[in-house]
């Protein structure tokens, strides 16, 4: 129980780092760490398939995309970042305190709605659910990947001469 809470605290800390880090590259890596920690949380909940996907896709693929965006825009954006540092600090320093206050505040609130944990009834296997009951969502996934391909073709194009 205590370990799980520590894990969740780490998750929030990693997310906080991702939003506060002054260098973009470091923020990106912190985001990857957040994803990895979330994957561990998902695994602990027993959502193994989702955990694997979170680890490979979010912590892996999205990090690659973000790192490439950061490095492709590097020289100019570094200058911008240096100029921006003061203002960033002014906008971001309250965030940790707000989070701590919110966390403490929320832990003192009495739960307004009663949620009873239901027994894990015969819910079945995730593969069966996905393939037999949620076919429509699978179809949606295929479509959105297709849209993504067109997105790459349209948006990652060199300027017409």
């Amino acid at each position: 129980m205590i370990w799980f809470t520590v894990l969740l605290v780490l998750l929030v800390l990693a997310a906080l780092w991702a939003s506060m880090a002054s260098a973009l590259l470091r923020a990106t890596l912190a985001l990857a760490l957040t994803s990895a920690l979330l994957a561990v949380v998902l695994f602990a909940f027993g959502a193994t398939l989702a955990a694997v996907l979170e680890l490979s896709v979010c912590a892996g693929l999205i990090t690659v995309v973000l790192v490439s965006v950061t490095s492709l825009t590097q020289p100019r954006s570094l200058k911008e970042q240096a100029a921006d540092r003061k203002r960033r600090l002014r906008r971001f320093w309250p965030l940790p305190f707000v989070l701590i206050a919110a966390g403490v505040g929320l832990s003192f609130v009495k739960v307004p709605v009663d949620i009873v944990m239901r027994l894990p009834a015969g819910d079945g296997d995730v593969r069966t659910v996905l393939w037999s009951l949620r076919q429509l969502d699978l179809f949606g996934q295929i479509l959105i990947l297709l849209a993504g391909v067109f997105g790459v073709l349209v948006l990652f194009r060199k300027e017409a001469k």
């Binding site: 398939l49 944990m117 894990p120 819910d123 659910v129 990947l145």
Partner: peptide, 20 residues
């Protein structure tokens, strides 16, 4: 809610959408 398998199926779809 005791619907882990369903929630997992939803999360998988969400992750795919997120990437795109």
């Amino acid at each position: 809610a005791g619907r882990m398998a369903l929630a997992q199926a939803l999360v998988i779809t969400v992750i795919v959408i997120e990437v795109v």
